[in-house]
Design a binder for these strands. Structure first.
Length: 721
DNA sequence: AGCACGCCGACT
DNA sequence: GTCGGCGTGCTC
């Protein structure tokens, strides 16, 4: 971990000429013992200098600024508090001796010091917003590590890590902390080979690190709660981050069942600003020592942290959409390293990153015995192209008879889940004959069907008129996705006696009763069925696997496993039918219920190709000029490799602009920069300093508003072709 | 980002 | 001889 401050001791060696004046000043005004303010106001007697992190964009770049502490603010101006300072106007004020120009802006007081390194006269703190010390040394250290890891600014990270102040919440005292609970028994952790040992280690103050492949079914929330309880029993705090509000609810319920009220806080965005800040404060003040929450909780200031845990790290919600877009898993890894605490990554599936933690020896696997898995997982059957072709009935009904059969039989035993692709998925086109994805002849982008009936490239936007298949020469197309939703509707009509419930983006159902019903859901929105689903039908195979993305296979498997984990085990007759080609690797992994094996193979492949997470990548995007300028200026580590630039898909005016996509009407390019393992920090540092130099200098060019010259940097880009 | 500094051309 | 253009650099 690199810990350079970016701001050295102030030596004159190699100083650029524009700093000479400053240095001359410094020499003349040499004795730095006592800071002077412009008007010589009375200062605090002890430690009269406040080191402040100014909370403003990216431009001041993680530098601290020193301010004088007026006597009347001495008591409140403690490290960690929010302050107001004047910032922005120049030295002229000293000469004119009149008004203190510059606007009032927010900042965090980072440190009180006896003297300043700054040669000039110090401005005084304008005020202390509140005496609540919200930014602890640990949180600051974490924020800096995250900023370094992601080539972002400290201020940006702090915006994610410290919730906005709410005076009412701050005014209320937090409850008295409860004593540590008893050590819980192993409970259902006994289902896993190393499970009980992991809990014992937590309870006795150890810092074990594990990647836990959870058995399908609802047991995971209780198991997480038990890990939290064991950590609390050791006298330490615990943090659990899950992908969504529903999962928070499950872990919350499990914690309450195990520990009663008052021992854990719930941090979600849904709570609203006041409640959220109140909970956050209770954690910071040490009133509550355990936290469960969504993404933003990854920064929760838990006291004496003993365990960090993340559930389902493959879920996209763990990626923070705001700069610098940190990922829960990576932030918790940093916390585990800094605080030397235990780490638990749990999931029904297994990401490539998780597999890497095990392969590298950093974390131990926690898995169940093979027979246990086989009994707990449903029986999985596939329907591929061959079956469809042979199955005359299937083509007529647009659904294979195996699927009908599974649904019919499932409905006799209980609810049946039907997983359909998310709406808004653009229908991608494929050759009707050989199923090869239809690609643009200009840029190889995916061709998409249009409402009007034509074809258009999803990347470069060109209309395609004379398409023919590059693989087999065929000239007939079929939609890869269209039909699944309609199929679900048809299913409903085919079983008129059975209620149909839907769960999706607009309305997500939490649970459904155990009585026979068709439950149609998009991936990730599947309700939990009481007693488990009798069967599931997974209809989005082509949609998931057809995407031209590195993670398409991994993602598809994750979503299938997520749905299939809600189905009763094979021993209770649970059945899953997946409509996808059985020769494909993710499909085979689902049939064998072997997510870890799949991730390990993916990992080996990525290592061979030099793909993340084995190497570290960053994406840099912007206009062609901006990108070329940036690439010319950046001083990359020697081992770095620049791929591209290539054109970025244009933003369709009709659809919402995705984060990182160019503004409508602009053409952007993107370069990928790759470094070997261990050089990630060096890459981030290089990108950061080049970006700093450019934003400081370049500024607004002719015509366009400022920013047309800027580039966007994304460490760990999620979408690598 | 603001905003003041400074070094060049048109004005009273 | 002075006013003000915006190009450049700093903000404790």
């Amino acid at each position: 971990m690199s810990s350079d401050d970016g701001q050295g001791g102030g030596g004159a060696e190699g100083a650029p000429p524009e700093q000479l004046a400053l240095i001359r000043d410094a020499v003349r005004k040499a004795p730095r013992a006592k800071p002077r303010t412009w008007r010589g106001a009375a200062l605090a007697k002890e430690l009269p200098v406040a080191r402040v992190l100014v909370d403003k964009g990216v431009l001041h770049l993680d530098r601290y600024f020193d301010y004088a502490v007026p006597e009347e603010l001495d008591a409140d101006a403690r490290p960690g508090v929010r302050v107001r300072v004047r910032f922005g106007a120049g030295r002229h004020r000293v000469r004119e001796g009149r008004r203190e120009g510059g606007g009032l802006i927010d900042g965090f007081l980072v440190e009180r010091r006896a003297e300043s390194d700054y040669a000039g006269p110090l401005a005084a703190l304008a005020g202390v917003v509140s005496p609540e010390p919200v930014l602890s040394e640990e949180l600051l250290g974490l924020a800096r590590a995250v900023a370094d890891r992601y080539a972002g600014s400290l201020a940006d990270v702090l915006q994610l890590a410290v919730p906005p102040r709410n005076a009412r919440a701050e005014g209320r005292p937090s409850p008295e902390p409860l004593p540590a609970p008893e050590v819980p028994d192993a409970g259902s952790w006994a289902r896993y080979t190393r499970g009980a040992a992991f809990l014992e280690s937590l309870a006795s103050g150890g810092a074990p690190r594990a990647v836990w492949t959870a058995l399908p079914g609802p047991g995971w929330a209780g198991e997480l709660a038990r890990a939290v309880a064991a950590t609390l029993a050791s006298g330490r705090g615990a943090l659990v981050v899950v992908p969504d509000g529903r999962s928070v609810g499950r872990v919350d319920a499990a914690l309450t069942a195990l520990l009663g009220e008052g021992r854990h806080a719930v941090l979600t965005a849904e709570a609203g600003p006041e409640k959220r800040y109140r909970e956050w404060l209770a954690v910071r003040r040490g009133s509550v020592r355990a936290v469960v929450g969504t993404r933003a909780a990854m920064f929760a200031p838990v006291r004496d942290l003993g365990l960090v845990a993340v559930w389902d790290d493959g879920d996209g919600s763990h990626s923070e959409p705001h700069a610098p877009q940190p990922h829960t898993r990576e932030v918790l890894l940093l916390r585990a390293a800094h605080d030397k605490c235990a780490f638990l990554l749990g999931s029904w599936g297994c990401t490539v990153e998780a597999a890497q933690l095990v392969e590298s020896g950093w974390a131990a696997p926690i898995v169940a015995e093979r027979e246990q898995v086989r009994a707990a997982a449903p029986l999985v059957r596939t329907v591929g192209d061959g079956d469809l072709a042979r199955d005359e009935a299937a083509r007529a009904a647009r659904l294979p008879s195996l699927a009908w059969q599974a649904v019919r039989e499932g409905l006799r035993q209980g609810p049946v889940l039907v997983q359909v692709p998310r709406r808004g998925y653009v229908p991608r086109m494929a050759c009707a004959q050989c199923r090869a994805p239809a690609r643009c002849r200009q840029c190889s982008g995916p061709l998409e069907g249009q409402d009007a009936g034509g074809l258009r490239c999803g990347w470069c936007g060109r209309d395609e008129t004379g398409w023919h298949c590059g693989e087999c020469g065929g000239f007939r197309l079929r939609a890869q996705v269209v039909g699944a939703r309609r199929t679900a509707e048809e299913l409903g009509r085919a079983f008129p006696a059975v209620p149909v419930r839907t769960s999706g983006r607009e309305q997500v159902l939490d649970t459904v009763p155990g009585s026979p019903a068709l439950v149609v859901s998009t991936p990730g929105a599947e309700p939990v069925a009481e007693g488990g689903y009798a069967a599931a039908l997974l209809l989005d195979g082509w949609a998931m696997l057809g995407r031209p993305d590195l993670r398409a296979g991994e993602d598809a498997l994750r979503r299938w496993i997520g749905a299939a984990s809600l189905v009763r085990g094979q021993s209770d007759g649970g059945t899953v039918v997946v409509v996808a080609e059985p020769t494909l690797r993710p499909v085979q992994a689902l049939v064998r219920w072997d997510p870890v094996g799949h991730a390990v193979r993916e990992l080996a492949e990525r290592a061979e190709l030099g793909f993340p997470p084995v190497s570290r990548m960053a994406a840099v995007s912007g206009t062609a000029e901006a990108l070329a300028g940036f690439l010319a200026a950046v001083e990359l580590p020697r081992e770095a490799e620049v791929l591209g630039p290539v054109p970025v898909p244009v933003t369709d005016p009709g659809r919402p602009r995705r984060t990182g996509a160019p503004p409508v009407g602009e053409r952007w390019e993107r370069a990928l920069i790759r470094v070997p393992p261990g050089r990630g920090a060096a890459l981030a540092a290089a990108l950061k300093s080049a970006q700093a130099a450019r934003t400081a200098r370049g500024g607004g060019r002719a015509g366009e508003g400022a920013g047309s010259d800027a580039v966007r940097i994304r460490v760990d880009p999620p979408d690598i072709g």
